[in-house]
Every structure is written in structure tokens, then in C-alpha cells.
Computed example of a mutant assay.
Amino acid sequence: MDDPTDDPRSARVSPRRDPGPPWVLGPVGERVPDVERIAVLRANALGDFIFVLPALEALRAAYPSAEIVLLGAPWHAALWRDRPGPVDRVLVVPPRPGIREPGPDESPVDPAGFLAAVRAERFDLAVQVHGGGANSNPFVAGLGARVTAGLRADDAPPLDRWLRYVYYQHEVIRYLEVAALVGAPATTITPTLAVTDADRAEAVAVLGAPTRPRVALHPGATDTRRRWPAEGFAEVARELVADGYEVLVTGTPVERETVDAVVAAAGVPLRPQVGTLGLGALAAAYADCALVISNDTGPLHLAAAVGAPTVGIFWVGNLINGASPLRGRHRPIASWTTRCPVCGVDCTPGIYPHRPGDGDCPHRVSFVADVPAVEVVEAARELLTPLRSTR
């Protein structure tokens, strides 16, 4: 009988006999032979994409001659245009339940036509690093790749090689384990995004060259439960302006009210930037900042990926899943609130059948309002203070 491990779809993961690269995090599966083209599904938001960058780097290192094609959203295509990194090309996935929502003024795309075009590309490997797989695994399985791999929650069909989706796991490590299924061990645990000359030029055109060190505050977040109150950001802004820093307050157009509230409450000169910077220019602006202070949201993770020190304000569950484990230049600050401040319902994910708290509470009040401003200021000043010689 043939050895089943000769089948490249085999889900068996054999431990390596050699110690491997320094960032090997666990068992590494067999590498898929003769791979020329890899599809990677990750079509969600900015922070979600930043988390998957180390997995993309692992795939690039393991399959250096393969084309890596990101199946993403329109903003991925715009961000990745002429940007060095592990993605060679972006294919925009049509809006589809559980995959991505349609954007404003987005033209309809025939899903059947898109799928036929993708299948014609004859991908050798398709990797699902999008989520638990209930919707994304059937989509990935339909791409026609020789080998599929990804995550699988209890309600999701399996791929050829799969890893169980468990809610409480750091997102970066989660996707690195998926990459390892196909013989791509980790080369780093730190997401890194290149800033281009075009990004820098756009940022300077909007902001001008800094005349003193800059700090950026980002008080918004899509989920209002992750928003620290405007008064907290305002207090931090006052302290930093008094310390001699120029303070930017960044936000998307839908966050204008939040940004305006911070500026009004601060009572000191700040520089609000609402929708003035494209995503690449925002990355460049953060890269030039001495510090970025933000709620747990995409811009926080973008700032870290372009090399800025950060102070992040996290709900404790999200701290587990998303806060940087590095402390040389990052300080995550946690709120330990787990029950809704309005109704008292346990809002931690109900990942066990016997456990209450499925997160179904209808209230969307802040779960991080109890973080003291003094703690944020202290963390900020610690990161802003140059390291002193210990000779």
C-alpha cells in the first residue's frame, strides 16, 4: 500500500527532526510539492490583515518562487499597489455573506464569473486565514486548488489540512500555525508593513514636516465597546502638549464626532486629521511619530507594523487575542470589565456550551472606560523617555 503521506493533501503534521529556524512555534507539516501559485483568503478589516502578515512572510520563505495572491477587499488592492512585501497580487473577492460586506458605491460582480476566473488560474495551494470557516471553507474549497488548508470551527466543513479554531488565541500565532500546516514555519512573530516614498510624500503634503516630536491619538473604533472615552484622550493630550509634543488626532470620516469631542475637551491646540490621509499616508504619518496612543483598532496595529511605539487600550479578551507581546516599544493597557456596565450580562465569548456569556448583549457602551488616564500618561512617558546609558 502506498504511504498516505505521499499525498500532498495529507493532514498529518510530522515533527521536524532538525531544530529548524529560530521562530518555529510547533510541528510543521509537509511542504506541498511543485507550488507555483498560492491563494490566501483574508478579506476583512485593517487590523485583521496586519495580524496575518507574519503568516504571509512564512509562506514567502517556504515557497520563494511561488506567486502569492491575496483574496481580499478593494482596500487591500489599493494598499498593496507598488508596495514591497510578501503579496504579489490582490484579487478582490466579490461581496459574499461571511466573507466581506459590499463597500459604498461598489459595482456588483458576478460571483460565478469570479469563481470561474479563479479556478482557471489553477492554484496549487489555497489557504484560509479568514476565520472559523463556516462560510470561508466552502469558498476556499471551491477555488479548485490542489491542496487547501485553514481553520475550522465546529460548524465548518474541513479542508485538506486544518487546525481547530479556538477563540482565545493570539491572532498572529493562529495564522502562523495555519501556515505551518503546509510546511511554512514562522520566520517572525512581528507584523511589518513597508512604508513607501509615495506614502511619505502624501503625508508631508498634508501634515508638513514636523517641527517638534509628534504623538498621534486615535480615539475611534468600529465597535463602540472598545472606545476609551474622549475625556481620557483629552487628558492625555493636555499632558503631552505640556511636555512639548505636537499631537495629531486621527480618525475616519465616520469618527469625526469622536475626534471633535477629544479636541473640544482637551482645550489645547491639537491637529485633528479626519479623512485627510489615505491609508498609506496614515502609515507614513504614524511611522514618523514618537508614539501612537489608540484604542484596540486597525490603526493601532498599523502603527506597530510600521515601527511606531504604541500604547493600546484593550478590553481584556482582546488583549489576549491582539496585543503585541513585545514590551520594548509597546504598552497594552487592559480593562478587566467582562460584564456589560448596563445590564450585567457576561459578554465574554461563550465558547463552552455550559458557560454563559455569548456576547449577545444589545448594549454597546464602553468596556474600557475604567482605564485610568494616569496609567496611559505614565506608559506614554515611559516610552517617550530616551533610554539612558547604564555604563
Rank of each mutant, 00 (worst) to 15 (best):
A73G: 08
L91D: 11
E57Y: 08
H218E: 06
D110P: 06
E257T: 14
A285Q: 12
D243M: 09
A308T: 15
P356W: 06
R60W: 04
V204T: 15
R60P: 02
L270E: 09
A234F: 00
R271E: 14
V316A: 05
E121Y: 01
L159I: 03
I313K: 08
V92L: 04
P219R: 03
V172E: 05
R256D: 14
N321M: 15
E255G: 07
H363G: 02
L91I: 08
A380Y: 07
S366Q: 13
I173S: 12
P95N: 11
V292N: 05
A264W: 05
P108R: 12
A73Q: 10
V342C: 04
G208C: 00
V127S: 10
P372Q: 11
A73R: 14
T5F: 00
R17F: 06
E106G: 03
P95S: 13
P86N: 11
P157S: 11
P64N: 08
T148P: 12
F49K: 03
P97R: 12
H354R: 13
A62C: 04
V92A: 01
R96A: 15
A303F: 03
Y168T: 13
E246D: 14
T148V: 13
R37C: 05
A265S: 08
V268I: 01
G29E: 07
A266N: 12
L217K: 03
T337A: 11
A112V: 12
D88W: 00
L282N: 09
D360N: 13
G103C: 09
A134Q: 15
A380S: 00
P94N: 12
R16M: 11
L79V: 02
S324D: 10
R256Q: 15
G232N: 04
L159A: 01
R226G: 01
L176W: 06
A303H: 08
Y175V: 12
S389Y: 04
L56V: 12
G357M: 03
P8W: 01
A58P: 11
